[in-house]
């Protein structure tokens, strides 16, 4: 198909408009975070300040509680991602390779958990975790986030296992290996891209979660990044430079994971669409 030059130019311009729209808010975040305080108000709408400085970053890293929040969020998101991926690999493997009576009910249960509003659970989960000493604790958050993310991750892992031929384990089992050994030594290494994608999805979800963290965490010591940043905003809402520097720092891990998994996104969905 030949396309006319006018159409090509329009196409590129439209693409450019989308790129600008997608990146502009993030660019602004970066811009304010490197603007020195004395220029913040005088050069309000300029596209780039006449002088830049990394003072806000230095302050946030050296004199604020943000490194603690950052560490807490890393611990919570990292532990959640690893735990979910292990549980979801096991459950996804069961759904992919076995035919058993309760399979239909397990799938139904997992689908139901994707339907109802999670905000319903804010109050009861607080009431349940409080006597166990799991409020205001990172462990409590990891447990809650793991449960929330396991259903989707299980379906994701199942679709990756479905893509691997059954003959591989069958051959190993004829050679005397148990199914679990075949799963661990043959199938899991083949699903590494799928495992990476699941880790990325769950990490980003846990890194971003706000409402349950706000409800369950109250002390500074165990605040995750969203809670810490919101507390900071409501207390010192004039330190824009520092808040945005903290915001840029919070963005880094999420964007890194996104860049790692983004090429699987469209590919994975396309494969699924063709298959289905």
């Amino acid at each position: 198909m030949k396309s006319k030059p006018v159409l090509t130019i329009l196409h590129r311009l439209a693409i450019l408009a989308y790129v600008v729209f997608a990146l502009f808010p993030l660019f602004w975040l970066l811009k304010v975070s490197v603007t020195p305080n004395d220029l913040l108000y005088s050069e309000g709408v300029r596209m780039w300040p006449s002088r830049t400085s990394f003072d806000h970053y230095a302050f946030v890293i050296a004199h604020s509680a943000f490194p603690t929040f950052f560490k807490n969020s890393l611990i919570v998101a990292g532990s959640t991602a690893v735990t979910v991926t292990i549980l979801a690999s096991l459950a996804g493997y069961a759904l992919s390779r076995f035919n058993f009576k309760a399979k239909y009910w397990i799938v139904a249960l997992m689908l139901i958990t994707q339907m109802f509003p999670l905000v319903m659970l804010v109050a009861p989960i607080f009431k349940m975790l409080s006597p166990l000493g799991l409020t205001n604790s990172l462990t409590g958050l990891v447990i809650v986030y793991t449960a929330f993310n396991v259903p989707f991750a299980t379906f994701l892992m199942q679709s990756f296992f479905d893509g691997i031929p059954k003959d591989l384990e069958e051959a190993a089992m004829i050679d005397g290996a148990t199914q679990f050994v075949a799963f661990r030594q043959i199938i899991l290494p083949l699903t590494l891209p799928g495992i990476a994608a699941t880790l990325g999805f769950v990490f980003t979800a846990a890194w971003s979660e706000l409402l349950f963290a706000l409800m369950l965490i109250s002390g500074n010591d165990s605040s995750t990044f969203p809670v810490g940043l919101l507390t900071f905003v409501s207390k010192f809402s004039v330190d824009f430079g520092q808040m945005m520097a903290a915001g840029v720092l919070a963005l880094i891990p999420a964007c890194l994971f996104f860049l790692l998994i983004q090429r699987y996104l469209v590919q994975g969905l396309t494969a699924g669409a063709v298959k289905g």
Partner: peptide, 14 residues
């Protein structure tokens, strides 16, 4: 697709 990776609380603040 990058905005999709931005944590929702940060998108709101931004």
């Amino acid at each position: 697709f990058l905005p999709w990776a931005v944590p929702s609380f940060l998108a709101g603040l931004n």
